[in-house]
Design a protein around this nucleic acid. Structure first.
Lengths: 134, 134
DNA sequence: CCCATATTCAACCAATCGGTTGACGATTTT
DNA sequence: AAAATCGTCAACCGATTGGTTGAATATGGG
C-alpha cells in the first residue's frame, strides 16, 4: 500500500545520494557536453576503470544517465528527468530565482559551482580539465 | 589553492548527502510549516531522540537548518540558502520550468513529490505511518 | 585464429552511516 | 532541594559506501 510512496521516496534517495559524490557530479558535468564511452569517462580520473563503472551504474540506477551498448562500447548520456524531479522537490522549499541561463552560462555555472570537477576529481597533474570542451 | 573549490564542492556533498535520507527530508518538510524544538521534531518518528538529534546535526552542518538554543529548548528552523545553492547547481543541467507555486501549493508539491512526506512527515493528521524503522 | 580493446564481475578492505542504549550536564518546575 | 525535562555524548553495532585488485566476458580488427 505504501509501496508507491516508498518507491517515490526511494527514487529521491537514489538521486540525492548519487549527487552527493563529487566524482559523480563531475561525470554529469562531463556528460553535459557530450555523450561518452565508459573508458572516456574514466580517463580524466585517478581511480580505476572499475570504480568509474560502479559510479556510472549508480548514476544510471538513479535515472540520471542512460546507457546504451553499441558494439563493445557502452555510451553514456545525460538524462535530466531525474534531476528535474529532485529540482521540483527542492522548489517546494521556496521559489529560487529561475536562474535563466543560456547554454554557455549553464556550462560555466556547472563548472564553477561544482568546483570539484576540477579540483577533487580530476587527476592531480592538472593534465586534462574535465570538460575539455572550451 | 583549491581550498575554496574544495569548500564549495564539500558543501554540495553535504547538502546532497543530507537530502539523500528520507527521515531528513521529512524533517525539512515538517520545518516548512513551523519552527520546532528537537523533541517535537522527534515525536512523529519511531526512532530514538538521539537519532533525530544526529539527523538535525547533519542538516545543520549542511546549512539546511539553523538551530538556536533558548533556555533548555533548541529551536530548529529551515534555512533555504543551502537548498538554493544545490538548486542552482542542478539548473546547470537544464532549465526546469520555474514551478511558480504559492505557499500552499508549495506544501502540496513537497507532499506529493516526496511521497514519503505524506507518510514520513505529515505530522498532524493523526496518522502515525512514520517510516517504521528498518 | 589470435590479440587487443571495452566493460563488468567477484572478492576484499577501511571508512562512514544510521541506528541503539545508557550516562550525563543544563535548565525548568514543583 | 529534589525531580522532571531537554538535548547531547560516548560506545557500540550491522549495513552500506567507495575504492582496490585480478579474473572473466564480450566484441572488433589484423
Amino acid at each position: 500500500m505504501n509501496a508507491r510512496i516508498d518507491a517515490h521516496g526511494a527514487q529521491l534517495d537514489q538521486v540525492f545520494a548519487a549527487l552527493a559524490d563529487p566524482t559523480r557530479r563531475a561525470i554529469l558535468t562531463m556528460l553535459l557536453e557530450d555523450d561518452m564511452a565508459v573508458t572516456d569517462v574514466a580517463e580524466p580520473f585517478e581511480m580505476s576503470l572499475a570504480a568509474i563503472s560502479k559510479h556510472l551504474t549508480i548514476l544510471a540506477a538513479a535515472g540520471l544517465i542512460a546507457q546504451e551498448k553499441r558494439g563493445r562500447v557502452k555510451w553514456c548520456k545525460l538524462d535530466p528527468d531525474a534531476l528535474r524531479a529532485a529540482s521540483v522537490w527542492m522548489q517546494g522549499f521556496g521559489q529560487f530565482e529561475p536562474v535563466n541561463l543560456d547554454a554557455f552560462e549553464r556550462f560555466l555555472a556547472a563548472e564553477l559551482d561544482d568546483g570539484s570537477a576540477t579540483a577533487d576529481a580530476a587527476p592531480s597533474p592538472g593534465a586534462e580539465q574535465i570538460p575539455d570542451g572550451h
